[in-house]
Design a protein around this nucleic acid. Structure first.
Lengths: 218, 218
DNA sequence: ACTAGCCAGATTGGATCCAATATGACAAGA
DNA sequence: TCTTGTCATATTGGATCCAATCTGGCTAGT
């Protein structure tokens, strides 16, 4: 086969649109026309419609009847609450994951952090930072918890990028320090410390984010 | 018009299917055939397909390519983690909601609890208990948080009903006591106490649930 | 000149038809 | 009798066509 056609076409289109939104190709407020997507990604409008419904259920787009799909604008309060949700949920995922992490997993997490410290561009950092945290949760096999965490990261991705692009460079050393402390606690199998460092990491990020009102357009 | 056709047909069908699943008309493991749903609820298969995609994104059904939709079976661990998620997220919703609750809101919450104490059937209790908690969160206007809480309640609804039907009757007084303590803390505007009572309430429910392995089929 | 109403184009929502895949029964051989 | 391969049927996935609704520009009237 020339194409693996992994799964259904609607799933493939949903994935492609999700990537476009997360990478900022589609910015908040931007209109998404079904026909344009259909011809860009190949296929008819039908799987595009299904993909948009799925993305709407995930909170990545908002649908208004007969008016079409848009990437939603989040205000400062919404993003702040999403970070408060992360502060509470991700330590739970870490607690469930940590006992299942193998030495191989820990080496992989180390490797990711090393690449971050070697200096990377903003898009690369966003990708690797997510890889880092998700790797620490990889021992957690609970679907609902992991998909909820994915959703929270997805919903805030745009604002994380906006923040990094305008103020992130000078604060990189803090992220690295927090990641190292977190990783050390994980390797020491100290769940209490790990949870503390993790929630602190998210909490500090939240506080820095909301001090930049220019990130939140409308 | 005979029917207001509130919103789109696909949304209407998704709502109807959601109700069927939450009320136990469709049990875990049960197959959902598109054609049957289409003719039962009126309309063609197309909006049914879109509705199923939406429900799949919400975790209420699982779709396998070319094999159709089923109501998913949750195992004991998955339900336990969903309750642990509730223990962490719902106190946040309460904390954000409480300052916005009016005296009218509080009276409404009281009224709901009174109806619960007057003695109700299992389906009525499930409905009113949800009404009670959601009313305490009604001052929280954050979409992502509230939709996440909705999802957690939806995913666990079937197991809550199974538990109530086999062991719930004798424990009703505990629920009432916890609700009253929670409500009192809310009325005293004591957020710390309210969060403590709420997380304790959810935690106790979780512990009782997982001691009944017969609830979890597979 | 400005506003209100209307009409045409564009876009989404829904129905029907066709293709691809899974399911289950039945027959043939060991 | 049990297993295995094959084929008919049922069911889902995708494409195309038609209807309903929104958007923007234009005209007419004040």
């Amino acid at each position: 086969m020339t194409e693996p056609t992994a799964g259904a076409a609607s799933a493939r289109i949903a994935d492609a649109l999700r990537v476009d939104i997360l990478e900022g190709v589609l910015a908040p407020g931007e209109r998404i026309r079904q026909e344009e997507v259909a011809e860009r990604l190949g296929g008819s409008r039908l799987p595009v419609r299904e993909a948009l419904r799925v993305l709407a259920a995930e909170g990545l787009v908002e649908l208004e009847p007969h008016k079409g799909a848009r990437v939603p604008h989040l205000d400062r309060d919404e993003v702040e609450v999403l970070y408060r949700m992360r502060e509470r949920l991700e330590p739970l995922a870490l607690q469930l994951s940590r006992p299942n992490l193998s030495d191989l997993d820990l080496a992989e997490i180390n490797r990711i952090q090393q690449r971050i410290e070697e200096g990377v561009s903003v898009p690369e950092f966003l990708h690797l930072d997510r890889e880092f945290h998700m790797a620490t949760y990889s021992g957690c096999r609970t679907d609902h918890l992991m998909s909820t965490i994915d959703r929270m990261w997805n919903a805030t991705q745009h604002y994380r990028r906006a923040f990094m692009e305008l103020a992130g460079a000078g604060r990189q050393w803090i992220v690295n320090a927090e990641h190292r402390l977190l990783l050390d606690a994980i390797q020491r199998a100290d769940d209490d410390d790990a949870e503390r460092y993790l929630s602190g990491h998210i909490r500090r990020t939240r506080k820095e984010l909301i001090t930049h009102p220019e990130i939140f357009g409308a």
